[in-house]
Amino acid sequence: MSSPKPLLVATDLDRTMIYSNAAAGATVAATICVEHLDGAPLSYMTAAAADRMRELAVAAAVLPTTTRTIEQFGRIRLPGAPWPFAVTSNGGNILVDGVPDSRWRRGIDAAVRAGGAGLAEVEAALRGRIDDSWVLKFRGADELFCYLVVDLAATPPDFLADWNSWCRERGWSASRQGRKIYTMPDAVCKSRAVAEVRARLIASGRLEAAAPTLAAGDGALDAEMLAAADRAIRPRHGELEELGWTRPGLTVTAASGIGAGEEILDWFTAALTGPVAAGTPG
């Protein structure tokens, strides 16, 4: 067995590590495609970021942590793979060598049932509040949560706040990430899954017991994970930027768009050789 890793890196993917053309912003850097959908290129990293991700995966325990479903995560060819662990479905699933952990999922399902409303009740209530004039897609995700793809310009201005209020009374919450509005049970969160993987890595001798956990993410669904980490970084774009979200010691990148991915990877790498700076406050 190799020596235990000195650092755990839990990182969101979309708009943190990987970027669509629309999310990338202006860049003159060379890029590589890391995801295709129906044969068409979809998501990118800069070539430099891809190299840094491969290097980081050798030196640290890297944990891809995404709200994507298992199927959606499977489309990504993230540099540094294969991953011993990955967190998908916003923490609802843990993949072990690419296979969903059934014990973890049973525990999540039980916690959702104990926490309030079930998915069927939530979906029914949501369908009664939307219409085709502004909702482009209604999707379920791994039988855990649901999300809408919306026309932002046509979305009723009070919809998200009103819907989130209804959800909060029933053990759920609602948040927006780009054109997607997620409806998520409180029991399904990235930070709990990250803590579980950390415990397993330490127990197996693959992570030092005193290793710090670093985290990166751009959306409201990442906030709890960032707050639970020893140190955290977010890009200067996305939902958390719009909300002005911060916490003591949080680093915010100078760059926005795809260049922020490089900056985040540099920040992770710097932590391998010494304490990373607190960085620019939010």
Rank of each mutant, 00 (worst) to 15 (best):
C146N: 04
G238S: 03
A124T: 15
V9G: 09
G249M: 06
T66L: 05
V28S: 13
A111M: 04
L8K: 03
S133E: 06
D142A: 11
L201F: 01
D151L: 02
V135M: 02
E123I: 07
A195C: 05
D132V: 14
A57K: 02
T31H: 08
A232N: 03
I94F: 02
A232R: 12
G118H: 09
D97N: 15
P281R: 15
D131F: 05
A209R: 13
G80N: 09
R103D: 11
V197K: 04
W166G: 01
L13C: 07
P100N: 03
G282T: 14
T27M: 04
R179Q: 05
T69D: 10
N21V: 00
L56Q: 11
L221T: 15
R127K: 12
T246S: 14
D266G: 10
G259L: 14
E262W: 05
A50G: 09
I94L: 03
R129V: 01
A117Q: 10
E262R: 02
G219M: 09
I264W: 04
T46A: 13
F85M: 07
E263W: 03
L201W: 00
C146R: 05
K5F: 08
D101T: 09
N90V: 11
R200M: 01
I258D: 13
S191P: 00
D162M: 03
E241M: 10
L13H: 06
R15S: 14
F159R: 10
Q177D: 11
R103G: 12
V99P: 02
W172A: 07
T88S: 12
P235Y: 13
C167K: 03
M53T: 10
R200Q: 10
C146S: 10
E35D: 05
A23R: 06
R75H: 11
K137P: 00
G259E: 15
G74A: 05
D131Y: 10
A22Q: 15
T213P: 01
W104Y: 08
G217M: 08
G205F: 13
K137M: 12
D132L: 04
G282C: 11
I233A: 05
